[in-house]
């Protein structure tokens, strides 16, 4: 136990300041947190569906939860059920074999709901394109609110995308 406590103290706080939603919006994390509270209840909950990615995007989504980016510290967390989710994050080109599962996940979410497409594949099919087994971009299957490009997008870009989707929603 002593070792653990020593290591925790030595590590200190690694979390970096949250990025801006985007330049035009300039929402401060605190302000945003208040807005999240007002709009979504206690926090924003995200459900992720890998609709056929290469797993590269998933690695960066996992990184968003590490101590440096600490997404959960902003009141944004990943949940296990679409019924608990306010936002659907989708990665990958949508494989034909995941098409039904993606639609069902989307349909299971309560309104209001947001969809963020993560990565070049989700944006336009990426390197996999469209083919006999790939439906290509996410918006071919469900409506998309925000797209975060990159292969894979960096954690900061993802956070900006999440924040942009939310502030867009809050403004409406």
């Amino acid at each position: 136990m002593y070792q653990i406590l020593k290591q925790i103290i030595k590590t200190g706080i690694k979390t970096e300041p949250a990025p801006q939603a985007n330049e035009a919006m300039r929402i401060q994390p605190q302000l945003l947190q208040q807005k999240i509270l007002d709009t979504f209840g206690h926090a924003l909950n995200i459900r992720l569906v890998d609709a056929g990615s290469c797993n590269g995007c998933e690695m960066e989504i996992n990184a968003v939860n590490n101590a440096y980016y600490n997404l959960e510290g902003l009141g944004i967390k990943f949940v296990a059920s679409p019924r608990h989710a306010d936002m659907l994050m989708v990665t990958g080109p949508v494989s034909r074999h995941m098409e039904v599962a993606l639609r069902r996940t989307f349909d299971a979410m309560p309104d209001p709901r947001l969809v963020v497409a993560i990565g070049d594949c989700a944006y336009d099919g990426g390197i996999f394109g469209e083919g006999y087994a790939s439906c290509g971009k996410v918006s071919n299957i469900i409506p998309v609110d925000v797209v975060v490009k990159g292969c894979p997008p960096t954690p900061v870009a993802m956070m900006q995308g999440i924040l942009a989707a939310m502030s867009h929603f809050i403004k409406e």
Binding site: D50, G52, S53, G92, P93, S95, H97, M98, A101, I127, F128, G129, G131, Y132, A133, S134
Partner: peptide
């Protein structure tokens, strides 16, 4: 098989360089 997206077929329409990226 859920993430089967046709990678092997895709290679067949690609140049050597594109194939490296895939």
């Amino acid at each position: 098989g859920y993430t089967h997206k046709g990678i092997e077929k895709r290679f067949e329409s690609m140049s050597l360089g594109q194939g490296a990226k895939l």
